[in-house]
Design a protein around this nucleic acid. Structure first.
Length: 411
RNA sequence: GGAGGGGUGCCGGAGUGGUUAAUCGGAGCAGUCUGUAAAAUUGCCGCCCGGAAGGGCUACGUAGGUUCGAAUCCUACCCCCUCCA
């Protein structure tokens, strides 16, 4: 190994262990493993019931990527069996069973997004069904008798639910066991996950020991707080930034995070070097720069990562134009409205049917509420009725962010 | 097998015969302010008709029943929780 490479290694190691880490079990052992020169099996599981990846997931995926760059191999487990159980960390216990086809489709979608961050060439994909399809009662008993109820109840989520009298199904108890068994099958060296996965991952470690394997190391990343600024990013709370979203959406959602989260996002979701982040922190602390400007930088970084620099710049222009200067955006979707020509290129139009039918507003009632709140503009001026006089090409703005260009259609 | 408690809107949680589309909190949406930040403040928050006043429909686990009238009473069923065995 040349000196040059060594330096890179040290630099990378620092990045790996000092940023975007919640907890490592056991750090010393992990470092020894990494020094052993062996290609490590990095385990990452995913549940094909929720195929969309958002920035919260990216925190962990970026870690995987960093490890890959050191030459290690990711083994992605498609949890086609655990998906049927549903991760108990959600409140609702039972989920509908997914069909084979649905799982296939979800897995496909997931993979496309997954490889936007993780290196495809250094990834192996394994399906739980490879081993669990063959499981019989004998094996299930063999697995379950290795653990006690008390052990499983130690999991915070189970514990809380039990204490507050909420149901826990036996099947759910199986979830951590299956996940643990995956580690045994693939002989995982390190399992990656959010801190909320700690219990499940630890169980894998436990089971490996019982089965005579060296226990896997745990690399737990922090949970990214969502755009609402209070809860962890998740699709069901709709406080997420999906990596498949348009540059404009991504940019806008980033701008909507609370200022207090800016540094956190820089650290967890971007490659901006530590020194720069440190400077940024200073600027925020002594108020020498408007936090908005810093957030714009963050938004550009994020959009660039999943789209391109150009898209990021365009998204920023759009943002400034539409939200800061309150002008109409460049591109506005056009809809045809039944119109009655009342002379001089002016048409009388009832906008309600189209807006409701196209789902731009939820219902007629909703539309009336918006009108009552002065939330609808025609070419920049508020309107108070769904019956309007407009020209072909006039622009409607509904709420903050919905724009509609009117195309007239005389019946 | 026995005893008791409970199932309400996106979530939590009131409500025990009419004044209840259902108190309150959270979430959400919109207005003002503004940096799609925070804070503040106002309004909305089942669907349909109506400019409005108002009217109609659907809804409190499911299906029936009593009643002029039921989320509230009765019957059966389904589901959940706790304790005893």
């Amino acid at each position: 190994m040349t000196n040059c490479n060594r330096k890179t290694d040290i630099y990378q190691l620092t990045a790996i262990f000092e940023r975007g880490v919640a907890e490592i079990i056991n750090e010393t052992e992990l470092k020894e493993l990494m020094n052993s020169g062996r290609t490590l099996n990095l385990k990452q599981g995913f549940d094909p019931s929720a195929p969309d990846i958002h920035l919260g997931h990216v925190v962990g995926l970026r870690k995987l990527r960093q490890f890959q760059e050191l030459g290690h191999k990711v083994i992605l487990i498609v949890g086609d069996w655990t998906a049927r159980i549903g991760d108990p960390s959600g409140q609702s216990a039972t989920r509908p069973m997914l069909s084979r086809d649905e799982i296939q489709v979800n897995a496909q979608t997931y993979l496309e997004q997954f490889f936007k961050v993780v290196d495809k060439d250094k990834t192996e994909i394994r399906w739980q069904s490879e081993w669990f399809d063959k499981f019989n009662l004998d094996r299930i008993i063999g697995l379950t008798n290795k653990f006690t109820i008390a052990q499983l109840l130690a999991r915070e989520d189970f514990h809380k639910r039990y204490a507050s009298g909420n149901p826990i199904s036996l099947t759910e108890m199986l979830y951590p066991l299956l996940q643990a068994y995956d580690s045994v099958v693939i002989q995982a060296d390190v399992e990656f996950g959010g801190v909320d996965q700690k219990f499940n991952c630890l169980l894998g470690r436990e089971l490996q020991k019982i089965m005579g394997q060296p226990p896997q190391q745990l690399f737990l990343v922090p949970l990214l707080v969502g755009t609402d600024g209070s809860q962890k990013m998740s699709k069901s709370l709709s406080n997420y930034i999906g990596i498949e979203e348009s540059p404009q959406e991504m940019y806008g959602k980033t701008m909507s995070i609370p200022d207090t989260l800016i540094i956190n996002y820089f650290e967890l979701a971007t490659n901006v070097p530590n020194e720069e982040i440190f400077q940024t922190k200073e600027q925020l602390n002594n108020s020498s720069v408007n936090p908005m400007e810093i957030k714009k930088r963050l938004a550009r970084e994020i959009v660039t990562q999943f789209h391109s620099k150009e898209s990021a710049n365009e998204a920023e222009e759009h943002f400034i134009k539409v939200f800061q200067k309150r002008e109409s955006p460049q591109e506005i979707p056009k809809y045809f409205f039944s119109s009655r020509h009342i002379g001089d290129e002016v048409y009388q139009i009832d906008i309600a049917p189209v807006l409701v039918k196209e789902g731009i507003v939820r219902s007629n009632g909703e539309l009336k509420r918006l009108l009552a709140h002065n939330a609808i503009e025609l070419n920049g001026s508020k309107i108070s009725s769904t019956i309007i006089n407009a020209r072909h090409g006039s622009v409607l703005r509904i709420g903050k962010r919905n724009f509609v260009r009117i195309a007239t259609k005389v019946d």
